[in-house]
Amino acid sequence: MDLINSVTFKDLKAPLFIAWQINSECNLGCLHCCEEAGHPMPDQMHKDQIFNFLRQIIELKIPYVALSGGEPLLHPQFFEICEFLRQFNISLKVETNGEFIDRNLAKIFARLKFRSVQISLDGATKDTHERLRLRGDWNKTVSACKALIEEKVNTEIVFVPTKFNIHEIGELIDLAYSLGVWGVYTGKIMRIGRAAKNWDILCPSDEEYDVFFAVLNKKIAQYDGRMKVYYYPYDVIEELKYRLRYPSASLLVIPNGKVKLIGPLPFICGDLRKHSLIQVWENYKQAWSNPKVVEFAKKVIEEPWLVSEANDWIELYH
């Protein structure tokens, strides 16, 4: 009856986590966006398809869902989706730029008892944040954090280091602590989407990363036991190497209902507008041993620039 480790994702009857990009519409034009978010996807799932998907999440007892975009709060059914999932006690996280969150919305997040609201804050200062997050408003983002924290919503901050902001990691973590956030998450920038197009101006040098890690480790120690400061240890290639051996028990759903195998690869293992969620899960399990996938993944590991093709989808199942 011990907790055991001998089970793999293939033994599970359904995924344990759904990362769902519910839209691609966004009010900002961040230079480092890995989705190239901005305009709505023309074939985005409509309301009936969304609720069909939601019902399957409940039936399969999937415990945890993260909603992102685009900017998910721009989705017309955002709160209907949240209400539905929370009604069935699914753990729910939203990843947002925070710009639409005022006191009233913070109260709704509190009432729905979100697992967390994760806000992208890419600078300790207004100038830095707004240079990277075009049309962004640092004051609104910080105000959103304050409103959520006042309503006792578990609030997390995500910081993506780039040449523009990497020097502010220490100040940002201090700011996060002063605001009362639950955790700060960071990890290397991914060479996908708009970030790939702007790679030369965004990607920090090894020397900049060395300084970043030194400050980060100091801050992790400084806030130990008081605030979670978490660095995701894999860059996109390391993640891919790891996932080839140990695929996760999660699905990445994009706004049109297609399901990606993993962010850095272009492979689509199903379409929730046509396939049931359980069918997509079975496709996903098989896809990780598909020679086409394995061969391409190995090629990407050898030639990391190929990650920039991750949004040129390749459908494995029609």
């Binding site: 009856m1 907790l3 055991i4 089970v7 033994d11 344990l16 415990p63 945890y64 697992r115």
Partner: peptide, 23 residues
Amino acid sequence: KIREEKFGAVIFETLKEKIFITN
């Protein structure tokens, strides 16, 4: 969150994002 499986159950502590398996 706890979900029954053929082999036993999965326990998912979603705040810390830790997964445990039991028979």
